[in-house]
């Protein structure tokens, strides 16, 4: 398997994929292809992200259409395919009654590793995810963040080629989130594991993904690279001030001077643009000086993924 050239086989190909639960149609005819790298699945609640993940993993049978993962048809290569994918579910999940490391070794063995290899891998991935000290404790005693990292360890223990993450940082505190994102990022950058992430947290997707699919009401609304989605807005500048009040003062004055003013991503930020030309740094500094404001940041404004997302979903109804 691994000797086939990776570039030529797309990681994921969907053809006319329809998924139904009873009478409810969760996915209505998806056609898409993900060549490889890292993919973010976005969409409002009920858009079909989880259904898509579950269908790809073979947890739900599609009503119509086909799914090919790493060039294999899911219906035929089910078991073989599942040895090569790792899934980190949204809900907590572990094997009860045994220590963290024993449960993990067990899962690795199920995914096709030999018994001794499975035990070695289980210890290794727990070290990697920073759970080395907790590995002999039952998972039921872990904290929210630890359980989340344990799920990542479980998804990685059999060394998959494709990693599926469903809301990977859900419920984690800021440091836990940063740590989780760092781990996932390293796995994909340094070890070439393909990544498919479903998340509501757009900054997470921005951090991890090169490509983005936006789903809405069971359809694919957009598929594009992150780079193109967040391309610089023409000539706009993002200005950062010491406090929200200062930002409001600048916004007001700038409005009078003929700038177009937008809210920034932060309360202490404003985005300034000109309808006709690029905004020059010089004029912003001068304006701030006149108002007696300290400038804490000034740079070309990129469009955030959030803006792009909202535009896609609200764009054409």
């Amino acid at each position: 398997m691994s000797d086939s050239p990776r570039e030529s086989v797309p990681v994921l190909e969907l053809e006319g994929l329809v998924v139904r639960y009873g009478r409810f149609t969760a996915l209505q005819g998806l056609d898409a292809r993900f060549q490889g790298g890292s993919l973010g699945l976005l969409g409002p609640n009920g858009a079909g992200k989880s259904s898509l993940l579950r269908a790809i993993l073979g947890l739900i049978r599609p009503a119509r259409g086909s799914i090919r993962v790493l060039g294999r048809d899911l219906r035929r290569g089910g078991a073989a395919l599942r040895r090569r994918v790792g899934y980190m579910p949204e809900r907590d999940s572990w094997i009860g009654g045994v220590s963290g490391v024993a449960g993990l070794a067990h899962l690795a063995e199920i995914s096709g590793l030999r018994r001794d290899d499975a035990m070695i891998r289980a210890h290794d991935v727990l070290h990697f995810t920073g759970l080395a000290e907790e590995r002999y404790r039952p998972v039921a005693t872990y904290s929210v963040g630890m359980r989340q990292r344990y799920k990542l360890a479980a998804a990685l223990v059999h060394d998959p080629d494709v990693l599926f993450l469903d809301e990977p940082t859900n419920g984690m505190d800021p440091r836990g989130r940063v740590r989780m994102l760092e781990l996932v990022d390293r796995v994909r950058r340094e070890h070439g594991i393909h990544l498919i992430v479903a998340s509501h947290l757009l900054p997470d997707v921005e951090r991890l993904c090169d490509e983005v699919w936006v789903l809405d009401a069971g359809r694919l609304r957009m598929a594009d690279t992150l780079e193109r989605l967040t391309a610089e807005a023409r000539g706009a500048k993002r200005v950062r001030l010491p406090a929200a009040a200062a930002a409001r003062a600048l916004a007001e004055a700038a409005g009078r001077e003929g700038f177009e003013v937008q809210e920034g991503e932060r309360a202490a930020e404003v985005i300034l643009s000109r309808p006709d030309r690029e905004v020059e740094a010089r004029e912003v500094f001068r304006l701030a000086r006149r108002l007696g404001l300290e400038v804490h940041g000034l740079k070309p404004a990129a469009r955030s993924l959030e803006q792009a997302f909202v535009e896609v979903l609200e764009g054409d109804g």
Binding site: R240, R282, V284, A288, E294, V295, H296, G297
Partner: peptide, 18 residues
């Protein structure tokens, strides 16, 4: 920051991040 603002007004600074 005050000095940078002066340099910025003269047009030497294109972006500032902290």
């Amino acid at each position: 920051l005050d000095a940078i603002q002066t340099w910025g007004e003269q047009g030497d600074v294109r972006a500032l991040t902290m």
